[in-house]
Design a binder for these strands. Structure first.
Lengths: 217, 217
DNA sequence: TGCGCTTCAGTGACGAAGTCACCAAACATC
DNA sequence: GATGTTTGGTGACTTCGTCACTGAAGCGCA
């Protein structure tokens, strides 16, 4: 079984293309917290993530940060390549959040695949679309949504199935592109209502129902 | 002379590709204020703008709006196609701001061109990159920049070489994704400082220098 | 010319969010 | 245990967004 099977969009590649792709790309592993791309550091490869997640975020000159989106296992890092491929000086950076395994496809191979395979083209354009809608959603959120709603949403997302979220107030602030104090105060309000309990670096969700209700209002 | 010469990125297309593109696409004209794409209205063609501008904006459920970016003459509407091509239900819409002439490339032709021509591929991916960096910049602005700075910036941009800007406070609010009252107050402050003069529907820039200084601080 | 209608802009009060400066626990380490 | 670093808490203040109005400017039309 090849890594290709981890990517639904690539499963229908014809055999020739498929073996070409497998032959010409290689698997790389990067440790946690590696900066994969960023100002002045453009990747020469298209990355397909096998394991781990990559966080893409932006830093303002005033030092505040915001998480734009994440690339998860089974997804590709198209924007990365495209952005840096053509346009230049902005400060977004991609960071491996955990140890990350990925398939690296050299630019030339990428180009040939786009040229030769309609399936690969579809894979690429679909990935683009997804990222762009992600960005649209980020814009809608920061421009129009109230912070308590966004925070509730983020807590549930980060918790996943777990009961607790391991994150400092500062990290949550970066997730939402706001200031640490704002998060602190909002979490206190949640705590006052008995929805969460806090301890240094972790948040325990006690009453999930009202949080979820708030999140989708 | 063909319309192709209006697109620098396409000038290097080989003759065969070039004539194929010209032959298979057609020129369309839409009147001002036409909704070119939007919720439930996805375009079957890739558009290359010959004349006019298309404004892409998003509306929140609470009724507030924000302008995401504009497509100008000589640019292509790639995101449009890609987004709606694959991903579904979000509320961005594209509106012709003026009467607009554009070249419409059917999806099949688009696909064949991407397959056959490295120049066309480069054109497409470059256009993508530009849009995405635009979106990154929008996010950075709304998340981190103060409103007076953004407004000063927008006024100068809208003025162009002219002395006056023809826009209502409401329009400016949509440009910046904020509320009308906020714009009104900020413009009053500019007026108080003697930088602008206002009359119904127009703003006259009197002191450009301090506005520009504020805009890039 | 005067009457209504619509669109645009101004205002005050208030709540929500961001900023600044500073303090106090909790943890890490030596 | 002394010390330094992270993390979180707090108050004062500014900016921004919201709501509910008011009033003025332009337009159509009898």
């Amino acid at each position: 079984m090849s890594w290709i099977d981890q990517f639904p969009g690539l499963s229908r590649l014809p055999d020739g293309i498929r073996s070409y792709l497998v032959g010409e790309s290689k698997i790389v592993t990067v440790p946690a917290n590696t900066v994969i791309f960023g100002p002045g550091k453009s990747p020469e490869n298209l990355l397909l993530l096998l394991d781990g997640t990559v966080r893409v975020q932006q830093t303002s000159d005033t030092g505040r940060e915001i998480v734009l989106y994440r690339v998860h296992a089974g997804e590709s890092c198209v924007l990365t390549t495209a952005c840096l491929l053509a346009y230049e000086d902005y400060s977004a950076e991609g960071i491996a959040e955990t140890e990350t395994r990925a398939v690296a496809i050299p630019r030339k191979v990428f180009d040939k695949l786009v040229s030769d395979s309609i399936e690969f083209r579809q894979f690429v354009f679909t990935a683009y679309s997804k990222r762009i809608t992600d960005l649209f959603m980020v814009i809608e959120e920061i421009a129009f949504q109230k912070l308590d709603i966004r925070l509730a949403h983020k807590l549930i997302e980060l918790a996943g199935g777990e009961e607790t979220v391991a994150a400092t107030h500062q990290k949550l602030a970066v997730e939402l592109g706001t200031a640490r104090e704002v998060i602190s105060r909002q979490l206190q309000e949640f705590q006052r209502r008995g929805w969460i309990e806090q301890s240094r670096g972790t948040i325990r969700l006690i009453e999930r129902a009202p949080l979820e209700k708030l999140a989708q209002s």
